[in-house]
Design a binder for these strands. Sequence first.
DNA 1: TTTTAGCACTCTCAAATCGAGAGTGCTAAT
DNA 2: ATTAGCACTCTCGATTTGAGAGTGCTAAAA
Lengths: 352, 352
Amino acid sequence: MPIKPPLNDRALHLLKVLVERYIDEGQPVGSRALAKEAGLNLSPATIRNVMADLEDLGLITAPHTSAGRMPTNSGYRLFIDTLLTVRPLEEQFIRQLNEEIVQQQSPADLLEATSRLLSETTHMAGVVMLPRHETQTFTHIEFLPLSEGRLLVILISGQQEIQNKIIQAPREFTPAELQAAANFLNSRFAGRDVSQVKETLLREVRDAREKLSQELLDAAHLSELALNPAAPPRKPLLVSGEINLMDFSELAHIDQFRHLFETLHQKEDMIRLMDRCIQSPGVKIFIGEESGHRAFDQCSLVTSSYSINDRAVGVLGVIGPTRMEYERVIPLVDLTAKLVGAALNLQSLPPS
Amino acid sequence: MPIKPPLNDRALHLLKVLVERYIDEGQPVGSRALAKEAGLNLSPATIRNVMADLEDLGLITAPHTSAGRMPTNSGYRLFIDTLLTVRPLEEQFIRQLNEEIVQQQSPADLLEATSRLLSETTHMAGVVMLPRHETQTFTHIEFLPLSEGRLLVILISGQQEIQNKIIQAPREFTPAELQAAANFLNSRFAGRDVSQVKETLLREVRDAREKLSQELLDAAHLSELALNPAAPPRKPLLVSGEINLMDFSELAHIDQFRHLFETLHQKEDMIRLMDRCIQSPGVKIFIGEESGHRAFDQCSLVTSSYSINDRAVGVLGVIGPTRMEYERVIPLVDLTAKLVGAALNLQSLPPS
DNA sequence: TTTTAGCACTCTCAAATCGAGAGTGCTAAT
DNA sequence: ATTAGCACTCTCGATTTGAGAGTGCTAAAA
């Protein structure tokens, strides 16, 4: 016998309405309610038949015999991939958001504010992964002698980001030597990537080790030390508004919330997860366990990478219950990533 | 008729045992239990009479007619002020703690680790208020010209703490002028307080305005800008282990916890509160509303200031439920403050 | 063939009831 | 001053109950 196409337009439409309604109300949706909402002039009984089909396909589920249905994670996935109609953001709102972002003084402030804004506008948790050290542009370096052969390295990179680091010099250097080393690096490498600079330096030293004087070798060694991300920007992940997540009943169970909170703050896993999003542009969505983390069972993560000079350097997004208003959140994350990128580009004025 | 002394030794002893027991178990203590615990060979009935007296004095209270009694905030206060016997810390534990503190690389790391350690060892929340900018020792300053008349100021203060700041120069300066200004400040003021330096500078300029050349005035103005704490170290308060507070049933009610969490992170109030502790040395304890904050109704705050060169520069402590093990927490906070002070002193090596 | 009305059935949730247990306050005896 | 005894109060968990919501199935209608 011919199997009827499991997903005709009507079923899809009903799924869409069901998901929207569930996102709105947070209650399992029954056949009667869905019949009214759908505007298809069908009786609850008919709706029930369709719902039974959708349940067979694993798209919706009922918490118990006599409750309505709610979307499963696959249901959400299908909804997001093919049914979702995003709601465009209001001009007014966009302007305000941009306002708040560009008024920040430094890149660090900017990204912190962004994390806060993400959480405030969505009433969920905002996350921002800072630009990786390696992908930053080398702009200027300076050495300052401290006591006992230690040196303070000041490294200014692309976005006017300033890094301080104290290193142990391989030997004593005179101020003149330090100045010379700094001058060399500054004139030769300004504008290149920090990681490139290091590579180039290493290669050149290797290729020409014999021909170089001890002084030069020392200086090169020094520079190499200075460029090492020895002090990686302490946990390059900003999380804010975690507490908002307590407002969602599905996450508000003490131990579950605690687990979630800890995963969010024990940042390694988060960083690894978000790192995967940096590759391809546009908004990415992880639903439930898709993120590979038990603690996120009932959560979705909506992310987008942001770029400086057309190059993706970081990732930002929000975390909330799977039951979130994707139609609003997705364009918001998308927009925020673009605004942040633009603002960071503006802030990166080259030093003299 | 002669009113019998309301608080004889026996009553005090019973109060002490009751508080200890309540801290241990978290359950209201009944007369039978207290009779056994107290070791006084009294019957529950007698105990009941004493308990009634203590209740009249507002030191203990019963949540309902037929539950045991639990301490009120005044009860805790009396307990802490006159009944508490602190338990000395184990040598072994002290060594470990010190180990963890001194192994940190920088003052910033050290204080962050301290906050974490406070929360981990007490299973409550740890707070550390960073040294105020003003009370830091001026050690070294450097100016780096950027584009468009902006200058990067690098200010090294007492504890090897490095501050970067970008300022708009009042006019263009030549590198030589900048060098001269830096040299002047470094040679003249090294080792003084940052705030003192600023004051002195202002005064001298005011006193001798007419006699000074425009160049010198400009340089002074520049230095003044540079020393302004224009970018106050972003919220100088580290909080960690907040989530631990969820484990205490008395704080685990969603909305109450949320309020607490927000107060803790909306740092202004916390900073103001802890600032009051910096004046006098030793451990300070705020019980319940003593801290002046509704959100802390059921919390106690145990703090101590820590010192560099015998001068109190910051405050640290823990926050937990009023029902905390004061006998262990108090010596712990005390010790931690001392270890942190010592470690910070060690780390402050003057630059060459 | 698709849709619908009807109906018995299932399950949850909130309210009501109940008994056990803990602890009290008071009184009278020691 | 202390204690035994006792009636009383209150909480807490288990159990019951009824209302409400929603389902699946069947048979009739379109």
